[in-house]
Structures are given as C-alpha cells and as structure tokens.
Design a protein around this nucleic acid. Structure first.
Lengths: 208, 208
DNA sequence: AGCCGGATCAGCCAAACGGATGAGAGACCA
DNA sequence: TGGTCTCTCATCCGTTTGGCTGATCCGGCT
C-alpha cells in the first residue's frame, strides 16, 4: 500500500519542519510538499494532488485559511483538509467546517492525535480535538449557537431592523454595550456584518 | 344630524385656512380645530375628539406625520385619519396606511374629491387619489413592491448579507450604482436601513 | 422628435457600524 | 479566595452606509 501523501500549509517554517519531522516517523505517512501561503497551497495541490492537506488558519498576509479551504475544495474535492491551528474560536470552527474542513486540530494536540486525525481524514472520518468537538457539538445541539440570553434577545431585536441606538434604547443599555454584544454575536455566528447576522438569524428555522 | 367635526393638521397656515374655507362651504362639515404640528395635533385630538383628522405628512420640525398618525391611533382609535399631502412616494403611502391612515389625498385633488374623502372616512370607507390608489394597488398585487428586476436581484443578494462592495463585484457594477439601487429599494420598501430591508425581504413570503 | 423609466456612475458629507482593547460589577462555582 | 461568565460601559479608529445631487445612456412609447 502506498503511503498517504500530505501537504503542509503554514506560514511558519518551524511549524512546518516540526510537523514534517513528526509525520516522518510514521511509515504510512509522507509529506510531499510544504506551502507558506494559501496561494502557494493552491498551486501545490494541483501539482501533487496530496491525500491530505494539513493547514493553519492564520496565515500572515494574503488569503486566509478559510478562504484557502474554500478554494481548495473547488479545485479538488478529493483530498481531505485538516485544520491545524492555535486557537479555537467558535467562528473559526464553524466557518472552517462550513468551508469544507475534514477535521480540526489544535496545535497542542498530542502526536498520536495528529496521526489519528490524518489517517482518519483520508478514510472520510472527521477528527478533532476534544475542546473543538465540544464547541461544535454545542453549536449543533443549540442552533442559536452559544448565545447568552441577553445576546439572543438582542439578536431578536436585530432582526426587526433596529439600529444600535434603537437597540440601546429598547434594552435600556448604552450604545457601547450594544456594540459589545453585537461583536460577540457576530463571532458566535461566524459572520462579520449585521446584515449577515440578520440573514442567518431569520433563516435559522422560522424565526419570525 | 350633527355636522362631521374635522381637525386640520398642517404646518402651513395658508393650507389650513384654505382647507378651512373649502370645507366650510359644506354644511355637513365643521372644522373644529387646527394644529401646526404633530404634538399640537395630539393635544387637540384629546380636547376635541374630532370625527376626522386631515393631516399633512411633511411637517417641518418635530414629529413627522407618520409618527403623528401612529400616536393618534394609540390615543383614540375612533377618529379617521386622512392624509393630505403634496407628494405620492411609495414609501410614504405604505407607511401611512400601515400606521393607520384611512385615506390618502394629494393636495391637487379637486374639492369634490376632498369632500368625498372626508365623508367617506367617517363611514369607514377608504378614499384616495387615483395615482395613490394605483400605487397602492401595485403594492398589494406585487408583494415585492414595485421593484424593477434589477432591484429585486439586488435585494436577493442583500439578504445573503453581502456588503456594497461585494454586491458590486457580484453584479459587475460599481459601488456607486449599488448605492443608487439600494436607495431606491429602501424608498420602495418604506425602510431606511439595509438591516430593515433585509428583515422585510426575508420575512416577505418564505424568501430564502 | 421628444419624453420617460431603468440602469449606470461620480463626488461629498455626516452618521452608523465594526474591530480592538481595557475595565468594572455581580453571579456562580470550585 | 480565586477563576469564569455575563453584562455593563468607554475610547479610538478606520470602514461602510445612507442621503443628496447631478449626469449619461439606452430603449420604449407617443
């Protein structure tokens, strides 16, 4: 059986070499290329058609990880994409999965976890770090995300088309507080504008 | 039979006296008070409880006509409110009717039309100038308002949460044009923010 | 030929919004 | 008592919107 081919995408050289060394200890895994940016990753995927792409989400300048995932999926829906990143924000997880990531690992994952994730990915299994899994699970279980009561209340009014000022008046809080809540809501919903938040909220199961 | 009592609301003295003179020619109509602002109108309605309120929508400073109508309805749902204004904008018509106006007349209406409207209003009949009626009819017949194909297309994308820049790219037009279309859409929907437009559009019949 | 509605674009300006950061008060839990 | 969460507020700053005005082009309709 041929080894599983892997493409590493991370803007930090040290991370790439560390991963390469780590994966190199496994006879069934072979790192065939490394990319330092989303653009480069796109080229290398076309060239090597690896079985798995292990990618960092935060990538200095240029295309970000999420966008890279989206593009990769368009180029070749075959290879599995594994996110390998430092932070576990709700928004990133949701968006990565949404963009088509096969798994989501945190950089503090144990070597064994990483191996398992790569092997699982090629077999179509989705592997993720426990904290990530738990967040995602909550997302699925509670479609309103992990919104606090206050946030949910705000989101409800948001869909009425109110401005920040109006929201503040309606809830007897300052505009500053409204903005804070909104920022949290956007992060949890994985959007970045109120327009998208409203669209998401309203479409999300008959909310009206 | 007692004459029908009327309250005139218009910030222009000349309009008020003109109307008073006009209505005065009819033995069954009696102007019992005049207000120059929404606030004043509220007070006078409480004081005189007129059968009909004939009101201009544009009213210099302070409360605008739409808001005044809304308040009046809260105070006393009894009297009929007749809008008597210069311009027939889609947004104003929709909002006035929505706020609870009984009829909608343009200032170039013939005297006979005005008399008929006032008499009709007290009897619960809704009278409006022909051009107004036609606009309103279109609104009802076509829930998408009077949106042109291009505007409808834009509104659709708007509900996806796109920014002006993105809308422009998607439709191959400049951001300036996007803004122009949006301004028209807002006017036709009777809203003033994209958030409200999105909310309206999405709720409007299962649009998704 | 002349007019009108629809679509396109520009420039200007004020208001609204979003991002980043810091911070304090109260509730709850270990 | 020391974390953690939620809700609250503030300031700064750059971007996005919305309002307004004016203009061009095209295709019908008259």
């Amino acid at each position: 059986m041929n080894p599983t081919t892997v493409l590493l995408v991370d803007d930090h050289l040290v991370v790439r070499s560390g991963l390469r060394a780590l994966l190199g200890t496994q006879p069934d895994l072979a790192v065939v290329a490394e990319a330092a940016s989303g653009e480069e990753a796109l080229d290398l995927v076309r060239e090597h058609a690896p079985d798995v792409v292990v990618m960092d989400l935060a990538m200095g300048a240029g295309m970000d990880g999420i966008e890279a995932i989206r593009r990769l999926r368009q180029v070749n829906t075959r290879q599995a994409i594994l996110v390998f990143t430092t932070y576990d924000s709700d928004a990133d997880i949701v968006r990565a999965v949404d963009a088509g990531a096969m798994g989501y690992l945190l950089k503090d994952a144990a070597p064994g976890e990483i191996f398992a994730a790569v092997r699982g990915a090629v077999q179509g299994r989705s592997v993720m770090s426990p904290p990530v899994a738990s967040r995602l699970f909550q997302q699925l279980r509670n479609p309103d995300g992990i919104l606090t009561p206050r946030e949910a209340e705000l989101l409800g009014l948001l869909t009425e088309g109110l401005s920040n000022r109006e929201l503040g008046r309606r809830l007897f809080i300052s505009e500053a507080t409204v903005k804070t809540h909104l920022a949290h809501i956007y992060a949890k919903l994985g959007v970045e504008t109120r327009a998208a938040a409203i669209a998401t909220a309203i479409r999300r199961e008959g909310m009206r």
